[in-house]
Design a protein around this nucleic acid. Structure first.
Lengths: 332, 332
DNA sequence: GTAGTCTTCTAGATCGTTCTAGTCGCACCA
DNA sequence: TGGTGCGACTAGAACGATCTAGAAGACTAC
């Protein structure tokens, strides 16, 4: 019964309002150059017909698409937070966001191509896995902003969180609480795991303390495994690669009757949803996703509008104190 | 130094290869009607220039866009799973996916409009919050598939999981283990909370058992709160609205020294990531996101290609047995 | 009264594709 | 010899918007 009806075009509205296509275009864009009376007449006609501009045609013709391409990984909760914040910041600055997911069977390169095909004026790539050359290749076409990764060559912008500072804050905090046996459970092959591990080592050594790194990974199970290993030679404090790992560590301690923070302090990284749960109350290093996202969007827009050369923004993370870190137990 | 270079068009390739635009188009699309020798020549030229078709122009001209619009909520991990699976199924059926997120400050209506503007041939909306009239309005333009919600009027397709069956399976399972004091912690205002709650009631009554519903919600904190309430009058089994709620419930029990499943069995819903963790091992009702996603994509494609009238697909969930449900303790 | 300026409007080109309707050779067959 | 069919290719019109250039009319200025 209800056959699919062709969507109305500028032409349809023009006929209905008795004006030219061009004038309708002017009115719809809110551009100056139309009398108030005709403006109303056109708007009425458009409303009546349910007219909406076809973005394909619009984007094709106009040099400016006002589109920011954003890739994210569907399996990373942290990325979802960024997507959310990016939308807000983009629309505040008058841009739209074109999303493209990196999923299983859909590599980053594919996600990026899709965004370019669709006319994105800049690319924001969360934790890019592409090598510097490939990134540079794209950067010759449009401004590219790397989010959460900073060694990306000098053709692409980067917005990242200062892992050095983050780990330093973590070590400082624990040392300040009187800890000296502070171990680190690393993130295995995860992005920025290497840097955090090395920073942990140097920060410990700088304070005359003995660094001990236990191999881990980005998930709860990884933390769980590391927790088992830690129990053989228990430190007084643990810095986990991230919150999920910290959760696994704590779980393994709990099972072994080791109490937190009385026996051992645990510090997470990311200040994620999990850390905030009332029954977790994990002290954590916050990278502040919304701020990072806003900075990335800002950087992309600046590059599009203001030219200039690429640069890198580094935000300093901060400690969110909760209940899993406390003074070191009296030495045994 | 490296000025942003205009991306090559069909025309550029045509000139380089010494043929017409139309022929290049034919070759690039892999359409028949070009000699093998020229085909190679054109492909070489295209590769040399780094040519990629501009999807805006392509979509504008061709009646078929082969685009499936998919809305999802950036804050729902369950949606991420679906996105992942949808990509796979769509590309298997020769379609692309256009993503649009529902985020804070970006309502569903906005997300849908974006998808239509971009030329999506069908809409897949995960857990739509729009009312039946608004959905029908869109359904007059393109096929609309509602995922995870089924009372959507007779103009739109729906693919959902059978909540009746899911809860029936849950009750069956627990009754089979000898439980009779089975309580339900509901999902508050969350989608499908009402249905699960009512089904729980009727299923209990059908078996001559007394239903007890404790108000909850979709998050861990909600479960935590419900857990406190439950402790005042402890059942032998609890059916949670979802896994996250179950986690909160279990956490509250653990704090009170109530052991699972010895004292009380807990059953989750969704079979999410959390349920699978080695230290959680939550028995749960699985809705099988990948299968739902595949069904939704399939339905959308069928509607686009084969016409026919809208219909609804209902998938039966199944029980995933782990360690949080066990025989009822001997009656006191 | 003519030129200049402003406002309001329009015709037509244009963006980069795809599609329609050819043209051009050339072999085949009666 | 002269249609006919076929394969390879092309010119030009779409698609639905934006943009440029300029026209028409009203109003001011000298």
């Amino acid at each position: 019964m209800s056959e699919l009806q062709r969507r109305p075009t500028l032409m349809d509205v023009a006929e209905a309002a008795g004006v030219s296509r061009a004038l309708v275009s002017i009115v719809m864009r809110g551009a100056p150059g139309a009398a108030e009376s005709t403006r109303q007449r056109v708007l009425d006609a458009a409303r009546q017909l349910g007219y909406r501009a076809d973005s394909r045609a619009r984007l094709l013709r106009s040099s400016r698409t006002k589109l920011l391409g954003l890739t994210f990984s569907s399996s990373q909760p942290f990325h979802a937070e960024i997507v959310d914040a990016a939308y807000a910041e983009a629309s505040a600055r008058g841009y739209e966001i074109a999303l493209s997911a990196v999923a299983s069977g859909r590599p980053e390169a594919r996600a990026i191509e899709t965004l370019l095909d669709v006319g994105a004026e800049a690319l924001i790539i969360i934790a890019p896995t592409l090598n510097v050359e490939d990134l540079a290749l794209h950067a010759r076409q449009v401004p590219v902003v790397s989010l959460l990764r900073d060694n990306v060559g000098d053709l692409v912008d980067s917005v990242s969180s200062d892992d050095y500072a983050g780990i330093a804050i973590a070590v400082d905090h624990l040392v300040g609480l009187g800890h000296s046996r502070i171990f680190h459970v690393d993130g295995g092959t995860a992005v920025s795991s290497d840097r955090r591990r090395e920073t942990y080592r140097t920060e410990m050594i700088r304070r005359g303390l003995q660094p001990v790194v236990v191999p881990g990974g980005p998930g709860e199970e990884d933390g769980m495994g590391a927790g088992q290993i830690l129990q053989a030679d228990l430190p007084t404090a643990v810095i986990a690669f991230n919150d999920r790992s910290a959760l696994g560590i704590m779980e393994s301690f709990r099972a072994a009757g080791i109490s937190i923070p009385a026996d051992v302090s645990v510090l997470g990284y990311d200040d994620s949803h999990f850390a905030k749960l009332s029954y977790v109350q994990l002290s954590s290093i916050s990278q502040d996703a919304p701020l990072l996202a806003a900075a990335a969007v800002g950087r992309a827009v600046d590059r599009i509008e203001g030219a200039k050369s690429p640069g890198s923004v580094v935000r300093t993370p901060h400690l969110v104190l909760r209940k899993t870190t406390a003074r070191a137990p009296a030495a045994t």
